[in-house]
Design a binder for these strands. Structure first.
Lengths: 102, 102
DNA sequence: CCTATATTTCGATAAATCTAGAAATATGGG
DNA sequence: CCCATATTTCTAGATTTATCGAAATATAGG
């Protein structure tokens, strides 16, 4: 995960609707959820949701699989792991008092 | 850490300049760095940097301490921890294949 | 008080984002 | 072919963000 990729992913998560969607999917597990399910669960208008989902897919936070008429959204756990790893990386190099010293 | 607080913090980290500043501070450790040091290290114009720093302080990602003429910026490690915890929370409730099953 | 240093505030512009209704597209079934 | 369902694309307005020079503020030292 490089700097720009991390910034882009964090920016996507930094929107209330998208964060709610992502957490819903993370909670749902690797089987994911259909766009319509997400819409019903979170009450976001279809066009707005579609916009947010495509943004999230673009940066790799989720992937979308089409099954006949429905589209299943699946969280990319590995991407999240990389992102978290990036944030902790180089934490307190040679210094005490930070994350690694607890 | 609640939903809105997490979204706000993630949004702040989701900007290339701010992410660079935050990582610089995280790397610097609990003693932090002066605004001027950050400016020199990252080459961001003073007024732009000041703007980004106050945003980060506002959401609790960093705190700022004034020592005579200089202002020291210190990363809030605990805030970062909470944020990461929030992202992993409820991960894959009752489902396999996610972060917790590796 | 005057000067140099450190940082913020002001102000203005350009760019990106969010939102959601309406229309369009895709697909499966009868 | 037609209909119902699922989702996206189009469009457009409102809001927020990013940027940074210039001016202002704060402070320490002489």
């Amino acid at each position: 995960m490089d700097h720009e990729e991390a910034a882009a992913s964090l920016a996507e998560l930094g929107n209330s609707h998208r964060l709610a969607v992502f957490r819903f999917l993370v909670k749902a597990g690797h089987r994911g959820a259909a766009v319509g399910e997400i819409q019903q669960a979170l009450g976001i208008p279809a066009s707005t949701l579609s916009h947010h989902l495509s943004r999230m897919a673009k940066v790799g936070l989720i992937r979308q699989e089409k099954h006949s008429r429905t589209i299943i959204c699946i969280p990319e756990y590995q991407h999240l792991e990389s992102l978290i790893g990036f944030l902790k990386e180089e934490c307190c190099v040679g210094v005490s008092g930070g994350l690694d010293s607890k």
